[in-house]
Amino acid sequence: MAEPAVNVKLIKERLAFLKGGRFKAWLEICAHCAYCSDSCFFYLAHDKDPKYMPAYKVKQTLDKLYKKKGEVTWEELEKMADIAYGDCTACRRCSLYCPFGIDVAVMIAAVRGILCGQGLAPKGLQDAAKHHWETGNQMAITEEDFVETCKWMEEESEEEMPGLKIPIEKKGAETLYVLNAREVKFYPQDIAEAAMILYAAGEDWTFPDLGWDMTNLAMFAGNAQVMAHSAKLVYDAAKRLEVKKIITSE
């Protein structure tokens, strides 16, 4: 199978855009001292396999991209994708271990952004981002389905807690409740249980009809555009409904 062409121009643009004071300083001063290696649970869990040490991950990804000025082969990009998505959770523990406080996770996130631009993000994340962009939630649940699920849960909890309502798009409510799309699709009883708690607590709350999915898988993919879009949906809902606070599930 022929390898897809690498969009070098896009990589170069991203690299130039990303090269702020932080990346410049970090990439230059990393002393390769290996203080960071013991911070990484990938490294520790792989029986101290050196290829999982944080500085090496940066050296193999962002540092390499800058050294080669973005002119990398598809194969190299795929290797970088394995590292950026597979060997790092961007937990930032290594930056606490680094004498210079180099934020490896931020650099790995930047690499993810570049890889995402080349279509190299893991398929699940890409799909989720696509769904979020198109439907406003990562699982492509229609507004109709969502409203119906809420109605259904309202009926289900009738016996246990009579008078319980699941309000949707109620303007001027005190609290906005947002959740994970997974709850709507696979665990609708979670909605009922959350509603019961909020009802019992006497909260004046509401779901929005758009922007009720607070997950942001595009962030993990490195897709900045969808990441901003996803966050903005929730923000807009809060503005639109004039709520005072937002509660998130999970």
Partner: peptide
Amino acid sequence: TRLSHIFLFFMTRAHIG
């Protein structure tokens, strides 16, 4: 070179702190 960390140390540490 990387030896510039004699000054940049203080900047990057201030940032992460």
